[in-house]
Amino acid sequence: MTTQSFTKMAPPQWLLDMWQEIDAKTFGKGFDCFAEDAVCNLGVADWHGRETIRENLRAFIDTGFTAKHQVVEYWDSPSLKIFHGTVGMKFDDPGIPTKHPSMVHLFYMDDADPSKVSRWIGAVGPTGF
């Protein structure tokens, strides 16, 4: 068994920068928070490498909607960061109403460089029942 203490605090700038890159559809320096060999598991996604994460998220976001991430809470520990929030999903199709699913993301920090994310696990939704 492992015990870990967390502190509820404001989200760090690296995390806000990453969400902003997604919301603005720019996918630039905000992704530098990931280690070069980072792994990302979002739902069924299994992406390996910072550039693969960047490009696959770009392809996903470019499928007909614009996202706007909102912070609900952020919990910090030295090796694991937990983010809870919502994401507004405004669809290009005006017939689809904007969705606001809940999301939770776990960010495991890299052992060699604790300023970088080595693994990102996230779940969003559902967007409806």
Rank of each mutant, 00 (worst) to 15 (best):
Val39Asp: 00
Leu42Ala: 06
Gly85Cys: 07
Ala38Trp: 06
Arg54Glu: 04
Val39Pro: 00
Arg50Val: 02
Phe34Val: 06
Ala45Cys: 04
Lys68Gln: 12
Ser79Gln: 13
Cys33Pro: 03
Ala38Tyr: 11
Asp46Met: 01
Gly88Asn: 14
Lys81Phe: 10
Trp75Cys: 01
Lys90Ile: 04
Phe83Pro: 13
Val71Ile: 09
Cys33Glu: 03
Asn41Asp: 02
Lys81Asp: 08
Ser77Phe: 04
Glu51Val: 10
Asp37Tyr: 00
Gly64Thr: 03
Phe83Ile: 14
Arg50Cys: 06
Val71Phe: 11
Asp46Trp: 02
Asp76Leu: 04
Arg54Asn: 05
Lys81Ile: 11
Gly49Cys: 07
Ser77His: 05
Phe91His: 09
Ile61Asp: 00
Asn56His: 14
His48Leu: 01
Glu73Thr: 14
Ala38Phe: 05
Ser77Trp: 04
Gly43Ala: 01
Glu73Ile: 09
Asp62Cys: 03
Asp93Ile: 15
Ile61Phe: 01
Asp92Lys: 12
Gly43Glu: 06
Val72Tyr: 08
Val71Tyr: 10
Ser79His: 13
Lys68Leu: 09
Cys33Thr: 02
Phe60Gln: 12
Thr86Asn: 08
Asn56Ser: 15
His84Pro: 06
Trp75His: 04
Arg50Gly: 06
Ser79Thr: 15
Phe34Ser: 05
Asp76Asn: 06
Tyr74Ala: 12
Ile82Gly: 03
Asp93Met: 15
Asp46Lys: 04
Asp76Arg: 04
Ala59Phe: 01
Glu55Leu: 12
Arg54Ser: 03
Thr66Pro: 02
Arg54Met: 02
Phe60Met: 07
Gly49Arg: 14
Val71Thr: 13
Glu55Gln: 14
Arg50His: 03
Tyr74Met: 11
Leu57Glu: 07
Ala38Met: 08
Leu42Thr: 02
Asp62Ser: 06
Val44Met: 02
Glu55Ala: 08
Ala67Lys: 11
Trp47Asn: 08
Glu36Met: 01
Thr52Cys: 15
Lys68Met: 08
Thr86Cys: 06
Ser79Asp: 13
Asp92Gly: 12
Thr86Trp: 05
Thr66Asn: 07
Leu57Ser: 08
Ala45Arg: 12
